[in-house]
Design a protein around this nucleic acid. Structure first.
Lengths: 346, 346
DNA sequence: CCAAAGCTTGACAACGTTGTCAACATTGTT
DNA sequence: AACAATGTTGACAACGTTGTCAAGCTTTGG
């Protein structure tokens, strides 16, 4: 199958390749009748521009990178899907780059994908969006980048996030409304800045209700199901066990739920449990878990939009990242399901 | 940041660009001392070849596409991750292309990504690996492609799969061993050929044990959690309800499990449940679900290996796809967990 | 009706790499 | 020692597109 090039189209339409190029890229300065004629030939010959030639010539790659810690998680899947669809919408392509900050040589890997693929922009997911060394690589390579849920976005980065603190406060306040006073909190790993913000919200809600936080019932997990399982044991072994557990993410909430079930503790009659994230498995549990829906796909899509915005790209990648348009907060939603209920009179 | 090109390296090393090219690509015919000198300069200048220029010139893109139906599923995440890591290993990049056979115009989308990105190869995941129209597009564009778990791979496709039939037989036989005789089966959607193979295995196991399949206890779901939930209801409402349910995938098994719990039916004491896939949430349930582990990541990695194999690529993409080396079956494993147990004397 | 200003168009040279081929250097053979 | 075979190297022309710039139009305004 002989490949159709811009020259074939040009010859057939009786114009120069440059004119065809103008039509394809929707540029001005082409007479309407010529434009149409060219478009007709393009359709006829089934011409599709060669992305490589285009990139080589224009120094734009139409490629965005998604840099992410753990590409297997449900969270990653949602972010990726949101980014993917929006890229398609904008005629970009997406390359997923796993970054393991624990593995030596990751810097080289990142630099290599930046310069070898000439990415037009990068989306950086949590928790690595808070790694200064990683961000420095983007800055140095002058690659525009947008962070998802960062703790403190540098001036040259765009950012998209949700209000973790407010969301956590909301759900904790809901537990208080239900009558709970002894509320345990399972923290996420310290590397995730979102975990700290959620804890802040939790503490704020309790403070507002005049409830003292029992520091013995605040434990650190690592966002894994297993850690939820283990900390569930620890919390329920407490001399004065909590009537509600607020876990920093759904997987840990799920772990705590299973621990309760193993012990024959009824949820929510004897123990309320809530999570954060609204991953699929929080719905596939019984009871289903009360949680906060994060607009993951939407955040990713918004990140793509910022990256392709010429205004953001100017200045070699977001020196004006702190302009309001490139700092975007998206709304969350509390989803009340079966795992939380009024304090029983057990 | 001025970009370093092959010419810069050549100049600095006192050789021609072509020689540098040879060194980079590990070609023969370069004197060892020159090779080393060039390598030194490459490291010194931090030179990284421009992927676009390379592709344009060599008509190889070093890009593989992963064509997949539902990129958000846990299954997809595993496949993608396996492919991603192996691509990295082989210095390829991976582009994920969601294909929604239900949306009009998907053909154009696929053709466009093939010809615009000049993919070097495609990995096609189930269930779309069984769509003749899709495969015809790859063949027509002469893009080498490897199918994951296809029903009948065409001669010009590579294929990687597991023995769904044997695995299903194994797990069904295990239920029989536990004493179950009334075993319900929840089928997957007809579009997934794996579902049919699993059903075959199920029927074979029962036949071998001399047990007649109760056709009323064979119901079709759509692989979703919800359908498991609903069919669980249906099956447990049967006049003579089953003592075990074998669902064609974990999500449906999970649904059936939740249904049982809602009704206060003890699992596995009163009802055994098993699934297929070993997705993360099958472990995050209580009891954990007995299932078959599919080597998803491994199959994807194997697919990458086949695609980059020059022997496979010859002849414009796998006319020799039916050579044994490009037809690979990977082993599965039965994972017995808490959701199955001996037939109670209820 | 003419000059100035704006539009439309195409020639040509990049972009950074690799394929081809010819030149030259080395080794092996008789 | 002459010649063939083989190994090493670089010149040059692709690859398919877009940026630049200048030439030839057309319109506008006086």
């Amino acid at each position: 199958m002989k490949t159709v090039t811009i020259k074939d189209v040009a010859a057939r339409a009786g114009v120069s390749p440059k004119t065809v190029s103008r039509v394809i890229n929707g540029e001005d300065h082409v007479r309407p009748e010529i434009r149409e004629a060219v478009q007709r030939v393009v359709a006829e010959l089934n011409y599709r521009p060669n992305a490589f030639a285009r990139s080589l010539s224009s120094s734009r790659s139409y490629l965005l990178g998604l840099f992410i810690d753990d590409p297997v998680s449900g969270y990653a899947a949602e972010v990726q899907h949101g980014a993917l669809l929006q890229c398609r919408e904008r005629s970009y392509h997406l390359v997923v780059e796993p970054v393991d900050l624990g593995r030596p040589g990751w810097q080289e890997q990142v630099r290599s994908s930046l310069s070898s693929l000439r990415l037009d922009g990068a989306i950086v997911a949590p928790p690595i969006c808070d790694d200064a060394e990683l961000l420095a690589i983007f800055t140095e390579a002058e690659v525009p980048h947008v962070l998802i849920g960062p703790s403190q976005p540098p001036a040259d980065s765009g950012a998209v996030w949700m209000d973790d603190r407010a969301a956590a406060r909301e759900i904790a306040a809901y537990l208080v409304t239900l009558g709970h006073r002894r509320i345990a909190f399972i923290q996420g790993p310290q590397s995730h800045s979102a975990s700290a913000r959620r804890e802040e919200g939790f503490r704020a809600a309790l403070a507002e209700a005049g409830i003292a936080v029992d520091e013995g019932a605040v434990r650190r997990g690592d966002f894994s199901f297993r850690s939820g399982l283990e900390l569930g044991e620890v919390l329920l072994d407490l001399p004065d066990p909590p009537s509600a557990i607020f876990a920093c993410n759904d997987d840990m909430a799920l772990g705590a739920l299973i621990t309760a079930m193993k012990r024959g503790i009824a949820v929510p009659e004897q123990l309320s449990i809530c999570g954060f994230d609204d991953v699929a498995s929080s719905r596939a549990a019984w009871p289903q878990i009360t949680t906060i829906r994060q607009p993951n796909a939407e955040m990713a899509a918004a990140a793509v939009d910022i990256l392709v915005d010429p205004a953001f790209r100017r200045n070699g990648g977001g020196r004006n990242g702190d302009a309001p348009a490139f700092r975007l907060m998206l709304p969350h939603a509390m989803i009340v399901r079966g795992s939380t209920g009024p304090l029983g009179t057990a």
